[in-house]
Nucleic acid binder design. Structure first.
Lengths: 344, 344
DNA sequence: CTGTTAGCGCTTTCAG
DNA sequence: CTGAAAGCGCTAACAG
């Protein structure tokens, strides 16, 4: 009773053009059912479809099948330069299976995250990749009533119940620490990330373990926790760290932005990096080779993380169990921000 | 005949729970039609909906209304740090009207772009924001048969027929040039971007105009075109530029990545920036304050560009004409990469 | 103001 | 192998 848009060509028009019933067209056009139709006819239908410029109406097929061929991706923000490579990986992988992604930015705002989830839920996303997990709030439960498979990426929550694609943060910090120890540092501090994030908390643990293992005699180096993973918070934390710990010769920062914050703090205090104090970052984000001194940092396989998450989600969506995480191996990129410990 | 997912609650169940007809539920739940229903009943319906955890099935309503509440955004890549703020702006603005965005990365690949357009088209996007326009290939024509409104962002094509949100590139280059002239430079070169992009081509034109206007006596400074907007291409182009033009004391680069390429070239040639050669960038991307020397660059209102594009598209989707572009005003951010011309 | 009804375009069972 | 028919959940005439 309400013809809104007769603008686009439908399956029926293709059927007419090809002289077959429209359900034959449906079968011929869907790769999964094509084998049910005589090859000859199938070809004719495809030609007609092409000629008329037909392309499927996803809304209709979603409604019918209950699957949208869209997945949601939730990130805390895009500006940190951590997510672009991840998103490219996700997209690249999903393209193979015809999925597209809707990206939601939460800006670390819970309210916002709820709105985004609601929007994704209405749009019947077939799956969800979430990069905003926190330790204090388990992610699974409420989420879309468990209707939709979820994979966590980069961070995990405290339950560990939701399958995740992560890096081995203990290992990553170990690499950085080891590098500093090899350079002769014995007074190494940690500029930690927020402890409510698994990344922040694990890297701190990694620091403790590494210290214990490699600097067994010495007492644990000083640790200060930044309020957030940002340059500004890193600067503030680093200043307070150095004010109270004059003998520190190296700082292991929990991420690149915090490391840049260290640069700013050092320059404000008139300390030279790396001559007086070495700094390591984490993530190897795009700018880390461009800053001066170029940042020695832990490299993460960000794009691969996206690819793995997409694969894992694809698995879940097709019924896999999802009781294994993927843990990628980080590596160390040595650049100019680390140098031998100054002899005093 | 095929009950696939009775998992989610529908309008009918809400109707039963509230003791009304399902079409009343539809009206009560849709803000646009809510005024058609007695407030009391509307409330009851909303409560029932909430209680049952109802939320709309977008596929069904898309199918019915012909509108998906999804827009597509096409970007050349995410890694350049230019697009994250733009995307955030777009999302922030669209959130107000309940739209979500599907982002497609083309990686500057035409084939890929076509695939993305097809995917977006199937998904019945209500509009399109395109950041991949080139001068040599008009964007409008073929695009989704003109079924869907399009706005261009950051770059435009040669026809100028599609409404666009841009910055005044002539003005931006003028600012940079003016700054250099004020510092006493008279031998200013331009490291141009690809001439097939409107940004590359307009900034070159801006350079010529500024030169003509401010350095009327002197002959036009040397110009070299980089193969792409990338650090590597910038380095290559800058090396060739300086090899042939020993007297250059300042370089206006067409974007920040090219400027970083200049840094690398200069350091390879043993030239000091800014003491011997000043460099200006363009875009004020996130890293430009972090590199050393910190980059003097032209600041673009990237987030605002996203917001404006979203507004413009919203206008087009609701039937506006769209015969005006939005042109934002750039500004100059002076940092450490520019200094007075060396006296010889 | 509310109920009735038709149908958006597609997939999939069921018959032939 | 192909045609017929039903219906996914919703909106929007239309009739009361």
């Amino acid at each position: 009773m309400t013809p809104l848009k007769s603008t686009s060509v439908t399956i029926r028009q293709v059927a007419d053009a090809a002289g077959v019933h429209f359900s034959t067209v449906s079968r011929a056009l869907n790769p999964a059912t094509r084998r049910l139709v005589k090859p000859q006819l199938a070809k004719k239908v495809q030609e007609a479809a092409h000629r008329l410029g037909y392309h499927a109406n996803a809304a209709a097929s979603s409604l019918r099948t209950g699957r949208s061929k869209v997945v949601g991706v939730i990130v805390p923000d895009l500006g940190s330069m951590l997510f672009p490579p991840i998103l490219e990986g996700i997209d690249a992988e999903f393209q193979k299976s015809g999925y597209m992604t809707i990206i939601g930015h939460t800006a670390n705002d819970d309210q916002q995250q709820r709105r985004i989830l609601a929007g994704l839920s209405e749009r019947q996303v077939d799956g969800l990749i979430i990069a905003t997990a926190t330790l204090d709030e388990p992610v699974t439960g409420s989420l879309l009533n468990g209707r939709v498979p979820v994979v966590l990426i980069n961070r995990t929550d405290s339950t560990g119940r939701t399958p995740a694609v992560l890096h081995d943060d203990l290992k990553g910090i170990h690499l950085a620490f080891e590098h500093l120890v090899a350079l002769g540092h014995t007074n190494i501090a940690h500029l930690a990330g927020p402890s409510v994030l698994s990344t922040g908390s694990l890297r701190l643990r990694g620091f403790r373990l590494a210290h214990q293992e490699m600097l067994a005699g010495a007492k644990l180096g000083p640790v200060v926790e930044a309020k957030s993973f940002s340059v500004e918070a890193g600067k503030v934390a680093c200043l307070s760290l150095l004010k109270r710990n004059k003998r520190v010769t190296a700082i292991v920062a929990a991420n690149d932005l915090l490391a840049i914050g260290c640069y700013e703090a050092l320059s404000e205090l008139g300390l030279k990096c790396p001559d007086e104090i070495s700094v390591t970052g984490y993530n190897n984000t795009a700018f880390s080779g461009l800053v001066r001194p170029a940042l020695t940092t832990v490299n993460l396989r960000l794009r691969d993380m996206g690819i793995e998450a997409a694969r894992m989600l694809a698995g879940l969506m097709s019924g896999n169990a999802g009781n294994a995480d993927v843990v990628l191996r980080p590596s160390l990129v040595v650049r100019g921000s680390t140098a031998p410990a100054p002899t005093r």
